[in-house]
Design a protein around this nucleic acid. Structure first.
Lengths: 203, 203
DNA sequence: CCGAAAATGGGACGCCGTTCAGTACATACT
DNA sequence: AGTATGTACTGAACGGCGTCCCATTTTCGG
């Protein structure tokens, strides 16, 4: 068979990404297969390889879009009266996002590149963009940029840890329902502790 | 071929677990395959299924032993002068353990059971045992058992988040070298913040 | 209208997990 | 010692997978 031209390359690309996303939302990374994608969109497996280098490339594309969506969700958070409150809002928005897209979110951690292959540069850039949202929220309260960097990373990792344990079947040390309370507790206690430390340094 | 009886069932079990562990340490879960295990130990793939129900069963067994090893490592941590210091030591011991066994540790999060299958009861028990080590360390400083539970979970999840981001290729928001400092920062600021909260409640 | 380029299908290769019938061996019994 | 019994084991088979590639068909430029 030859050129069908019932879909443009871009349309085909979106078809593939759409079908892939559905498969992942249904069954995680394990539910994804080139053959199943092809079946769903009515093309043969080989066609996928005209558009994506391989499945890893496809998955990275989906991950990129997911990071964009999270960035947008965090961007939609209105700044609150205090930096502390803003961080709380960001953390809860992150939590909400992961809760609404659990399988897709897990993709970021389920998926590994084959040994030796590096993550693309734009991927790292997107992550830094997300982190900088937290850093900016912390700016009024932490002036030293090293402190800001560290605090943002600790908070990010902490919230990630909670959501990661909550959305993973394999050990719910943390239940889905308790996650928001834990996140609040982490953010408030950690920031309070940081504040006290600063006071000590100031005296 | 018939019974070889060059190895007892227990020896065979250990051979299989040993080869599997090596494969995972080399290439993560992706490096594990029933056929490759069989090749390495000089048996046919079918033999594995006399001893383990399937690969998931085998992997869960490895995970169980890993959790036991971590439990032992945490048990070897000597109590410090203050509860806060003890928690610091526990956190650093956890970090060290994951750093020394990165691929094996990642197994806990890479591996998912097929949909519908639940984690065995002993697995949950082991996890609770680990958590209770943190709770016990917090006991002198947090009397309300709810507070203890929450604080232990937040700390556990927080440290997990940091190590998880540090040991994952796919985005090193956190570098391996900076992880210990982040863990210290998290523990000290969080506990300080908790202390202040308590003071407030006491007044 | 024809030739060239491009897109696609479909089969092939070498993997995978898992199952199972058959076989060769060790043991138990006579 | 010889035979019967049961079991540990093999190896092939099934249906799946990712990826590659060639033949074919269709579209487009001239």
């Amino acid at each position: 068979m030859g050129r069908r031209s019932v879909h443009t390359a871009d349309e085909l690309r979106e078809l593939i990404l759409g079908a892939s996303t559905e498969l992942i939302e249904a069954n995680g990374l394990a539910g994804l297969s080139a053959r199943e994608i092809a079946r769903r969109i009515g093309y043969s497996p080989g066609t996928l390889y005209n558009i994506f280098e391989n499945l890893d490339d496809l998955v990275l594309t989906i991950e990129g879009r997911l990071l964009d969506r999270l960035d947008q969700a965090l961007g939609d958070v209105p700044p609150a009266s205090s930096p502390t409150q803003t961080v709380h809002r960001l953390a809860q928005a992150y939590l909400r996002f992961t809760h609404e897209n659990p399988k897709l979110w897990n993709l970021l951690f389920e998926h590994h590149l084959p040994p030796g292959r590096e993550v693309p540069a734009w991927y790292q850039t997107k992550l830094e963009g997300l982190l900088s949202r937290v850093e900016n929220a912390l700016a009024p309260v932490l002036t030293r940029s090293d402190d800001k960097r560290r605090a943002a990373r600790v908070l990010w990792a902490g919230v990630h840890g909670i959501t990661s344990l909550a959305t993973t079947d394999k050990l719910s040390i943390v239940s889905t329902e308790s996650a928001p309370a834990l996140v609040d507790d982490l953010v408030s206690a950690y920031l309070k502790g940081l504040g006290e430390k600063q006071d000590q340094l100031a005296t």
